[in-house]
Design a protein around this nucleic acid. Structure first.
Lengths: 338, 338
DNA sequence: TCCATTTACGTAAACGTTTAAGTAAAACGG
DNA sequence: CCGTTTTACTTAAACGTTTACGTAAATGGA
C-alpha cells in the first residue's frame, strides 16, 4: 500500500507537506499542493483509516444496535428498510456502519464493543430498551440517536404511532365499525403509544373498548395472531374489525379467518400496520399504515452526523415522522347495518 | 479510554509486558500475567482496534459487497437471510462486517474502499459480476469468497440451482405436467444454470421446451411477471404450469391469473423459487424451492475466515449447498387428463 | 564451580497518520 | 533599507499497539 511517505519521497517534500496538501490545508503553495495531489492520484493513494482513526479519534464509523425479540436479525422488515435508508444516507457523508453486538467471542458489552471499534456515533433501534447493556450505552459519552424510543437527554426519531393509530381508528369508524379489536405487540414504548391512541381515539367517538377486545401478542408473530384471532371470532359478541400489530401478524389473521370458514372483508374486517411489501400483494389487499422508513432512516442519520460533527450541540430533539394510510380491500363498509 | 500505558503504570511494569500478558504470550511469568489481566479487567480495558490494526495489518473486519440490480439493498430477501447468517457466524469468531460501497462522497472504487477500511477478507454476492469494479476486486490480493458465482481462482459457495431446478421439474413432471413455461431472471450465472437445468431435465423425459414458453424477465419483479404470465395464458397453446424466478414474481403471477378469471392450481399450476417467508403465507400456499440461506451464509463465512487465518491455503473450492423443495398447494395433479 | 541455557522482564522501533512548533526565505510597510 | 509579517515548508512528537531484540538474573548440566 502506498503511504504518505512514498508520495513524499517521489515529490521530494516532507510527509507533513503531503498530509497537509491532501487535506487541503492552506499551509502549502497552490502549485505544490496540486502537484502532490496529482502524484497521489497517479500512485493510487488512499489514506489508511486505522492510522487516521488512531491519530484523530474519529473512525467515520457509525455503530448500529439492533436486537429484536424475535431474533429475526437483518431479515426484520421494518428495521431493514430503516437501516437501508440510514446506510445510504451516512455513506453519502463518508461514513460506514458497524453492527454492535455482544455475542462476540470475547464477551464484550455493547458499550465495550462500541469503544473497541471506536464508533463516532450510535443509532439504536428495535431493542429491549430496559436491557442494562442498552442503558449503559445510552448513558455513555458517544453521540446517540434512538429510533422509536425516547430518552430524556438523547435525540429520538419516532414514527408517529399516535397519529398513525388515530388515522386507522378514524378510518375504521368512518366505515361504520364500532366493535374494534386490537391484537397488540409486546409491551414497548411503541406499543404503549399505539394502545393509548387506540383507546383515546375511540373514546372521542364515545366508543368504549371492551377489555376482551385487546389481546397482548407479539410483533411479527403470525401464529400468535392466528390464535388470538380465533379467540376473538369465537367471542359471544365478536368484533367487526380486528387490528394487528403488523402486516405479518395480519396474515396470520387471514389464515385464522379462512380456517373458520369466514371471508375478509365480508365477514370480518382487518387492518395491518407497517405497509410492508407483503401487504400490497396479499389478497384481498390489506389496508395498513405505512411507516415512512425511508424518512426515518434519513433523518436519524442526518441528526446523528450533525451531532458527531458539532459536538457542542446540546439541543435534544424529538423528530416525529408521519406515516401514511394505504387503503386496500380488507375493511368492509358496514354503515348500512347500523 | 484506558490504554496499555495506564495498566503498565498501575502495575509497575513496562507496556510490552502488559501487551504480552494480555495476548497470552509465554514470555511473562504466570503470576504477573494474572495480576496484569486482573488489573486490566478492573480498569475496564479494551484494546484500541485502530492501533492494533495499524500495527498488525489485521482489522478483524470483513467487507461485504452486495449491489443488486433492483436496488433493494438490505431489504433483499435472499441476501438479507444469507447476510444475517454470515454475520452471526463471523461475529462468533471475533469479526465485524463493513459494507463495501462506491457511492461514498469521495468516489472510491470497491477495491479502494476495501483498502481504505483494511478489510481482512471480502464476500461478494448478488452483484453484477461483469462490472469492472467487481472484477478489480476479485483480482486483488485480499481473500475473497463469492456467493452464487464462480471465478477460477476464488472459493465459491453456490446454492445448488441445477439440482434445485431439477427437483422442481421432476416434481412438475411427476404431477403430469408436460407443457411447462419458465419466466426467468436476468442473465446471470444463476439464471444460466437454472435455465440449462430446466431444459436438460425436461429433455431427459423427452419433453422439448417451446421457445415461447421461456420468458426473460427479472428477479423480484412482480409487475414483469404479471405481464409475462398474461402473455403465456393467452398463447394458442398455453402451458399447464408456470415457473417463476422467485416467490415475489410468483405473487405477480397469482395476480395475473386471478385477473384473468382463473384459479391456482385448478386452471394453472405455478412454482416459485427461494422458499421465502411470503411463499408460506400466501394462499394457496406456494410450492417452491427453499434455498438454504442459513448454510450458505455459514459456510461462506467459515471458508473466508479460514482463508484469512491460513494465508498459505491455496485450495480453490466449490461448495455447493443443497436446497429443499417445499410443497404447497400451487401445483395440480393433472395425470388424469393425459 | 563454570559456562550455557532459560526465564522474565525492559527498550525501542515501527505501523501511517496529524499537527503543533520551528525556520528560512520572501514579501511588505514605512 | 531595516524590521516585521507572511509564506512555504520541515521537524518531530504523538496516537496505542506489537514485536524483535537486549539483558540481567535464575537455573541447569557436567
Amino acid at each position: 500500500m502506498v503511504s504518505l511517505k512514498d508520495i513524499a519521497q517521489k515529490c521530494g517534500v516532507s510527509i507533513a507537506t503531503v498530509s497537509k496538501s491532501l487535506n487541503d490545508l492552506n499551509d502549502v503553495s497552490v502549485e505544490t499542493k496540486e502537484r502532490i495531489k496529482q502524484v497521489a492520484r497517479e500512485m493510487g493513494y488512499f489514506p489508511n483509516s486505522s492510522a487516521r482513526a488512531l491519530k484523530t479519534n474519529r473512525t467515520h464509523n457509525i455503530g448500529v444496535l439492533f436486537v429484536d425479540q424475535s431474533q429475526s436479525g437483518l431479515t426484520h422488515d421494518y428495521f431493514s428498510q430503516v437501516l437501508d435508508s440510514f446506510k445510504r444516507t451516512v455513506e453519502l457523508r463518508g461514513y460506514d456502519i458497524t453492527f454492535i453486538n455482544s455475542t462476540q467471542s470475547n464477551g464484550m458489552t455493547y458499550l465495550e464493543h462500541s469503544r473497541y471499534r471506536g464508533v463516532d456515533g450510535i443509532v439504536i433501534a428495535c431493542v429491549d430498551f430496559s436491557d442494562p447493556q442498552v442503558i449503559e450505552l445510552v448513558n455513555c459519552d458517544i453521540p446517540v440517536v434512538t429510533i422509536d424510543h425516547v430518552f430524556d437527554y438523547r435525540i429520538a426519531v419516532l414514527s408517529d404511532n399516535i397519529q398513525g393509530m388515530h388515522d386507522l381508528v378514524e378510518y375504521a369508524y368512518a366505515k361504520g365499525h364500532r366493535k374494534i379489536a386490537y391484537i397488540t405487540g409486546e409491551d414497548t414504548m411503541v406499543t404503549r403509544n399505539r394502545v393509548g391512541s387506540f383507546i383515546r381515539s375511540l373514546e372521542k367517538h364515545l366508543v368504549v373498548t371492551k377489555d376482551e377486545y385487546i389481546k397482548k401478542s407479539s410483533y411479527r408473530n403470525p401464529d400468535k395472531a392466528y390464535m388470538f384471532t380465533k379467540e376473538l371470532l369465537n367471542l359471544k359478541d365478536p368484533p367487526t374489525l380486528i387490528m394487528y400489530p403488523d402486516d405479518y401478524s395480519a396474515v396470520g389473521g387471514y389464515n385464522a379467518i379462512r380456517d373458520e370458514g369466514l371471508k375478509v372483508p365480508d365477514d370480518i374486517s382487518i387492518l395491518g400496520y407497517d405497509g410492508s411489501y407483503i401487504s400490497q400483494i396479499i389478497s384481498p389487499k390489506l389496508t395498513t399504515l405505512k411507516q415512512n422508513t425511508e424518512e426515518i432512516g434519513k433523518v436519524s442519520a442526518g441528526k446523528l452526523i450533525h451531532l458527531i460533527e458539532n459536538p457542542k450541540t446540546t439541543l435534544i430533539q424529538r423528530l416525529v415522522i408521519d406515516g401514511m394510510l394505504l387503503e386496500g380491500e380488507s375493511v368492509a363498509d358496514i354503515r348500512m347495518y347500523e
